[in-house]
Design a protein around this nucleic acid. Structure first.
Length: 298
DNA sequence: CTTGCGTCCTGCTCGC
DNA sequence: TGCGAGCAGGACGCAA
């Protein structure tokens, strides 16, 4: 469900509720959704998840997002990294936990204010369990052991980064965009949206994308994501921010979820198909498979 | 090394 | 109304 705009929106909605608050209780209801690591680079080893690794007893001092991943950091230096996968949610509710809990809540925290009063409850809910939690002793450890696999954050992606990743690649440009080590934060929705905006057919060979097209695409990715953040992210079904609010970005989608409907630019019927095992929608006119000068040759 | 495919899960929608 | 098939915003492990 969540790509960069949804996670950024979650981060922003979460911050005012959790910054400066102390973690008074931390419960992991399913052990298998959390992996913990101890140590500092370059020596980081898996360990059993103890409550203090879930930030028990520490104060939350900040948040950081890289691609689709979110990190909460504490005054102790400890880090809790959250990945929402397909159906994950991080929900804040004022006051103590209320029974019954929603379904599929795998972890929950109680937060207290400086005076010791209960401020609220944080819930990690993930029905499909494609998401999870990862804990580290420091931000350096998280960066070394987990975020090292991520490419540049998609909000800051530079044409050069795309150019370098595409060169010598033998797969479709959309498949390359979905790879988080190329750009971090683009998923199925925004890959299609950005490719439409850049007028590039998703099945084009990445290696054949020109320098000019890389520049267009990098700009299209940044603009698409920025606009989606402004609209609160795309709520297809499950996505909610920390306050439980849905986003309206899907109202502005040009192609995602619009297969068979008219292109917003040229009115031609939008095509769809399977690419990299993901449903893909594009405009066959605005996003030609062959460069324009080939279509009129012969 | 790279790439494509199957797989991990639950739940919702659609067609019969 | 019931039931099975198909599909969903992600990304890993494995085999070629």
């Amino acid at each position: 469900m969540p790509e960069l705009p949804e996670v950024e929106r979650l981060r922003r909605s979460l911050e005012p509720h959790i910054l400066g608050k102390r973690v008074a209780s931390a419960r992991l209801r399913r052990r298998d959704i959390c992996e913990s690591f101890a140590g500092e680079p370059p020596t980081i080893t898996p360990v059993r998840t103890a409550p203090e690794r879930l930030l028990l007893g520490s104060t939350i001092t900040g948040t950081l997002r890289r691609g689709k991943q979110l990190a909460l950091f504490a005054d102790t230096g400890r880090i809790l990294c959250v990945h929402l996968g397909m159906s994950g949610q991080l929900l804040f509710r004022p006051g103590p936990p209320t029974r019954p809990l929603p379904t599929h809540v795998h972890a929950l925290w109680t937060l207290t204010s400086a005076d010791g009063s209960i401020h609220g409850t944080l819930l990690f809910r993930d029905p499909r369990r494609f998401g999870g939690l990862w804990t580290f002793d420091s931000l350096a450890a998280l960066r070394h052991a987990r975020w090292n696999r991520l490419g540049p954050d998609a909000l800051l992606v530079w044409p050069r980064a795309l150019r370098k990743a595409f060169a010598g690649s033998r797969r479709a440009v959309k498949a390359a965009l979905l790879n988080q080590s190329v750009v971090a934060g683009v998923g199925n929705i925004y890959a299609d949206e950005a490719l439409f905006k850049a007028r590039i057919h998703p099945a084009r060979d990445a290696a054949n994308i020109t320098e000019q097209e890389c520049a267009n695409l990098a700009g299209a990715i940044r603009r698409t994501l920025r606009r989606a953040i402004q609209s609160g992210g795309s709520t297809i079904r499950d996505y909610r921010d920390a306050d439980g609010n849905a986003g309206t970005a899907s109202l502005h989608h040009a192609v995602y979820g619009r297969s068979g409907q008219p292109c917003r630019v040229c009115r031609h019927r939008l095509s769809s198909g399977l690419l990299a095992q993901r449903t893909t929608v594009w405009c066959p006119v605005c996003q030609p498979l062959e460069p324009a000068h080939h279509r009129h040759s012969r």
